[in-house]
Design a protein around this nucleic acid. Sequence first.
DNA 1: AACAGTATTTCGGCACTGCCGAACAGTAAA
DNA 2: TTTACTGTTCGGCAGTGCCGAAATACTGTT
Lengths: 256, 256
Amino acid sequence: MEQYEREPNTPVKTAQTTFRIVETLKALDGATVTELADHLEIAKSSAHNYLRTLEHEGYVVESDGEYEVGLRFLDLGGYARSRERLYDVAIPEMERIAEATGEYANLLVEEHGLGVFLARERGADAVSLDSYTGQSVRLHTTALGKTVLAYLPRERVESIIDRHGLPALTERTITDRVELFDALEEIRQRECAYDREERIKGLNCVAVPILYDDDIAGALSVSGPVSRMGQERIEDEILPELRRAANIIELNQAHS
Amino acid sequence: MEQYEREPNTPVKTAQTTFRIVETLKALDGATVTELADHLEIAKSSAHNYLRTLEHEGYVVESDGEYEVGLRFLDLGGYARSRERLYDVAIPEMERIAEATGEYANLLVEEHGLGVFLARERGADAVSLDSYTGQSVRLHTTALGKTVLAYLPRERVESIIDRHGLPALTERTITDRVELFDALEEIRQRECAYDREERIKGLNCVAVPILYDDDIAGALSVSGPVSRMGQERIEDEILPELRRAANIIELNQAHS
DNA sequence: AACAGTATTTCGGCACTGCCGAACAGTAAA
DNA sequence: TTTACTGTTCGGCAGTGCCGAAATACTGTT
């Protein structure tokens, strides 16, 4: 029996707080020493020491009192992404989709039970939403994520739900376990997933799986405003485009 | 007198080693517990504890013994980038350049004395090089970086050199202080910078500055193989394209 | 099967250091 | 000047990161 969760036996607590601090800076969209200390309930002096070292290491930037997440993380993140072969293979196809549909084309992979947007290609008519490349999202809140879940072994899905729960983002988000598994079953049969304003109001999304030797490698989607994402257009124009792209990507992934 | 370097008075050493570990994972392109311990000269048990906690926090991924930098960093990095207004403004112009020239269009900003590739747009003929979005590079090794240096106050440049030195990447890299300052002077007069195989052999690059209220906000460039980047083409086709784009970007940066 | 030889993981104890609270300094408003 | 708020320094204690050794798991080989 493979294990999906390994608790560290002797966790390095300082490393954990280090990342808690950076994540808090992100959540607060920048913070001062006292703001951070208050928010994390640690001494001001401790917050001060952490922020200063992080700044010195180049992972945090400061401008008159406000500390911010630094671009240095983009180096590590970009490197991690560059190692994903799926990324290179998918980009040209995504450009085609974005051009053909005019909407956003999105690529997502799973890591540690969360979905990570590996890439987004912007079409001519695409509305810019408050979403960015690299963003990690709950899998059950997007068409992309549900697609990935649908093709993951059931016990894996269970353990992901155990770990991350099923929090709601809009009133349409699936928050019930059995409801989710029903949806996943449907996705497997239809071989595509929908997101009808489950993550962001006014935004619809269709996704198809990208497989690799029967395993799920990621998911590909097109997203756009509800007004332009009617059922007819999805079935007649977008889905064929997505399936064609997914197929090419699957074939181009070298079986090493 | 503004200070550009602030040594933390009481550095959180564990936070420093945490990042040293992640950076080492990147440098070694993945490592096992023992490889990491050997490389950093720490006890295997310590390496083990760090890696496990980092994995548990989601910042490192493990697959049969090999630990790797995780995609989680892309979330922080992508967030940091999304906060840069320059990014949004520049993307459409960079797409135009990439399409018009067929080469790579690149955008770089400075942070902590290093250059960070905020974006790269790929043209039709662009050769893929081992470079990725977010990569941080030494400023003196690229046309983009030299452009930024040229428009930075002199004492700032001095302190950057003090901190990061002038290491060579190819035999053409500028490694001499006065030579560099001469080059910067020339760049200011020409209002553009060249990179003739100073960072990567076989690769040429032209860059122009993007200013914001007389301060340097970043630099924009086109890069391609030496064979296609002759002086005539640069001056007749590429530079006008770059200057036009830089101008539009400068105007579109809202002066708030 | 038994084995060596490799790796990772656990364990216990010491020294270090991360943590806090209080004192100090610097800034802006009253 | 006083007040109130920051950010910063300092010293001492408790917690924990660190190491080395022992224990366990994994290979592939004989």
